[in-house]
């Protein structure tokens, strides 16, 4: 007589079954083996269902789902995958066909690029990707994106923001479009940045560096703060991470992601410094915590979330 398997052992087997089914499909052989396994213990069917659910859930969970009005995640992802596939296909025929990605307010998307790189695109952004023979070119028209660049020494990966250029061979970095320039954050490796048409030589930025590149003045002296970069890129995980930012700055950050703005009705509160990690799609919880810690009233209606009483 066999010793009864623990739930944990069953779960481990079930996870392996999911991988095998994923690899071989439900062929008659697989079905027969699976049936025999399932018959051995009533709990196994349950564990298999759980493991399959996790495996399938990861399809749709890649993309954050902040707004209910969006298309089902699976479909969006399928569309993204199809686009990436199309780029590869068309790329063979035409070589240079740009492909554009747009995110709405509150939407954060991660898309695979045809060269093996990936782009995590922040709220309200638009970018165009063109995989050329000599240069992999991304044009950031608005917003912010973080790139994980696949190594390809023969084809540099160049992001264009207005006249600002940021180039890498294989590394990870983010760029955010600003009025008249761009902000660059390097998370891995080294990038070069310069302004197209300017006399100044490119400036190299290493991991941990943040620099604002002005279209006229060129790259500013970078500040090197690896911990701050992780915090500032918390949007990739759907969060806003505050470590001493003022309420005014925090509200502006939330308002990047939400159509219903956080409004500071009492200007005396604007410079209060805040700490904490919040979901970027949940400004109301943020406002509630601020209200609690600053003893300020919070009023939310359809138009806005107001913190504090207007003076007078």
């Amino acid at each position: 007589m066999n010793v009864r398997q623990s739930a944990s052992e069953i779960e481990s087997d079930a996870a392996r079954w999911v991988m095998r089914i994923d690899r071989e499909g439900r062929s008659p052989d697989v079905e027969a083996d699976l049936k025999a396994w399932l018959a051995g213990d009533s709990r196994r069917a349950g564990a298999l269902l759980q493991a399959e659910a996790v495996w399938s859930m990861t399809d749709r969970a890649r993309l954050l789902e902040p707004a209910p009005r969006r298309a089902p995640l699976g479909r969006v992802l399928a569309a993204a995958a199809a686009t990436a596939a199309a780029v590869v296909l068309v790329g063979v025929l035409l070589l240079e066909r740009p492909d554009s990605y747009v995110t709405e307010v509150g939407e954060v998307r991660r898309v695979p690029l045809s060269d093996g790189s990936s782009a995590s695109i922040n709220t309200a952004s638009r970018l165009e990707v063109e995989m050329g023979e000599r240069v992999r070119r991304v044009r950031l028209d608005r917003g912010e994106a973080w790139f994980q660049v696949a190594k390809d020494a023969a084809r540099p990966f160049r992001v264009e923001i207005g006249r600002v250029r940021v180039e890498a061979v294989g590394t990870a970095f983010s760029v955010r479009r600003l009025e008249g320039g761009a902000e660059v954050r390097v998370t891995e490796g080294v990038v070069r940045t310069w302004v197209e048409g300017a006399a100044r030589a490119p400036v190299a930025l290493a991991a941990g560096a943040v620099s604002i590149v002005d279209e006229r003045a060129g790259p500013a002296t970078p500040r090197v703060e690896p911990a701050a970069i992780d915090r500032e890129l918390a949007w990739r995980a759907g969060r806003i991470d505050l470590a001493g930012e003022t309420l005014a700055e925090a509200a502006a950050e939330f308002n990047r992601y939400n159509a219903r703005p956080v409004v500071i009705a009492d200007p005396a509160l604007a410079d209060e410094r805040l700490y904490g990690v919040f979901r970027l799609d949940d400004p109301e919880s943020f406002a509630a915590s601020v209200g609690l810690s600053l003893s300020a009233p919070v009023a939310a209606d359809e138009a806005a979330i107001r913190i504090g009483d207007p003076p007078g």
Partner: peptide, 27 residues
């Protein structure tokens, strides 16, 4: 909760996360 799964994947050990990303996202 569903959105959190995305974060859970990000939090997987490196090689594990790569397998998930290559298999599930890049297909």
């Amino acid at each position: 909760e569903l959105a959190r799964v995305g974060e859970l994947i990000e939090g997987l050990p490196e090689r594990c996360r790569k397998v998930f990303t290559l298999r599930k996202v890049e297909g």
